[in-house]
């Protein structure tokens, strides 16, 4: 059994995104058109087909996280960083995340793939330092 997902994960982990040349050789390896590989790769939320910004800060906005102050955390990040959600100014992309399955540890913040649970407003500054 061959799983393209395994290859995609390998590439994503190695480069932090899915570079074109890697997808080209993946297409070759699996005997599939590049457009099909791109179609699959671009679907998933954990893969990036573009060269990503240096840092990602994601705040989960599922109901449990919101009930535990996620929106206040999100706005605090916006203010502290001076960036708006999903914009690509600078090195940091701030985004809303969908449920991360850690609702018992809400609110959840993910920075460059690392999970921070039960985040409080007073932790924000320290968290931002992870990106500096």
């Amino acid at each position: 059994m061959k799983f393209i997902l395994e290859d995609l994960w390998q590439i994503e982990k190695r480069f932090g995104y899915l570079p074109r040349r890697e997808l080209e050789s993946l297409a070759e390896k699996h005997g599939k058109p590049l457009a099909e590989i791109f179609s699959v790769a671009s679907f998933y939320s954990l893969f990036s087909v573009d060269n990503p910004p240096k840092h990602f800060i994601g705040v989960c906005t599922c109901p449990s996280c919101i009930a535990n102050g996620a929106l206040e955390i999100l706005h605090a990040f916006e203010e502290e960083l001076g960036v708006s959600i999903n914009s690509d100014e600078g090195d940091i992309r701030l985004l809303k995340l969908q449920c991360q399955g850690r609702c018992d540890k809400a609110p959840v913040v993910v920075i460059d793939g690392v999970y921070y649970e039960k985040v409080r407003l007073e932790n924000i500054e320290k968290l931002i330092e992870k990106c500096r």
């Binding site: 058109p33 590049l34 099909e36």
Partner: peptide
């Protein structure tokens, strides 16, 4: 296979890779 769906949800488009 020059074109295919790409991305998802409301951002879904049919494009070359």
């Amino acid at each position: 296979g020059a074109i295919n769906y790409a991305y998802r949800s409301i951002n879904t488009v049919i494009i070359p890779a």
